[in-house]
Simulated scan of single mutants.
Amino acid sequence: MFNVGFLWLALSICSEITGTSYIKKTNNFRNPAMSALVIGAYSLCYFALTKAMGYIPVGIAYSLWCGFGIIGVTIFSMILYKQKPDFPAMLAMGLIITGGVIMNVFSQM
């Protein structure tokens, strides 16, 4: 059955990825447009995460938020800042995805 909490969680994850990815472009919050983007993204992120936790157990919501946030920020850093993850980073991200899938599919929380 569909759980609207996962839509809130997806919005939260996307907002967190956006905010975190653009922090570097705020130039220590001296760039007003980028600063507003980061503050707005984090505000939306925590609002949506709060809503998601009304439908999804806290442990599952938070672990998915953290894990997919890490992966998303890594992907954005590859695009925005030309950073290249090495093999240990790729392996760790694979384990994060695996853990998220296992927790989602098999957890009875």
Rank of each mutant, 00 (worst) to 15 (best):
V4Q: 15
I96N: 05
K24P: 11
E16N: 09
A10C: 10
A52W: 15
I70D: 13
E16L: 00
G40R: 05
K25R: 12
Y55K: 07
A33I: 07
K25F: 12
I102G: 08
T50Q: 03
V73C: 10
C14Q: 02
Y81I: 01
F87S: 10
S35K: 02
E16D: 05
I39L: 14
L7D: 02
Y81D: 14
I102H: 08
M90L: 14
Q108P: 00
I79C: 01
G69H: 04
F76E: 13
I13M: 04
I79E: 00
G99K: 08
V38W: 02
V105W: 09
S12A: 12
P57W: 13
L11C: 14
G40N: 11
M1W: 07
A10Q: 00
N104I: 05
C45S: 14
L64D: 05
G99M: 08
K25Y: 12
A61T: 07
T74E: 07
L49A: 02
G100K: 02
V101G: 03
G72A: 15
S21L: 01
N27S: 02
G99D: 04
V4Y: 15
M93L: 00
M1F: 08
L80Y: 09
S12P: 01
L64R: 06
F29K: 07
T74L: 09
M78S: 15
S35R: 00
S107A: 12
Q108H: 13
L95T: 11
W8I: 00
F76L: 12
T74S: 15
G54A: 11
I71S: 12
V105A: 01
F2P: 06
G100C: 14
I96Y: 00
A89I: 11
I97W: 10
Y46Q: 04
I60G: 06
L37V: 07
P32D: 14
S63L: 12
E16H: 04
F87L: 15
T26I: 08
P57Q: 10
F87A: 15
L80T: 07
L44R: 02
L49I: 03
A36V: 00
S12I: 00
T26Q: 08
L7T: 08
Y55A: 06
W65T: 05
A33Y: 14
I75H: 08
C14F: 14
S63K: 06
G19F: 04
M109K: 12
I56V: 14
G5T: 09
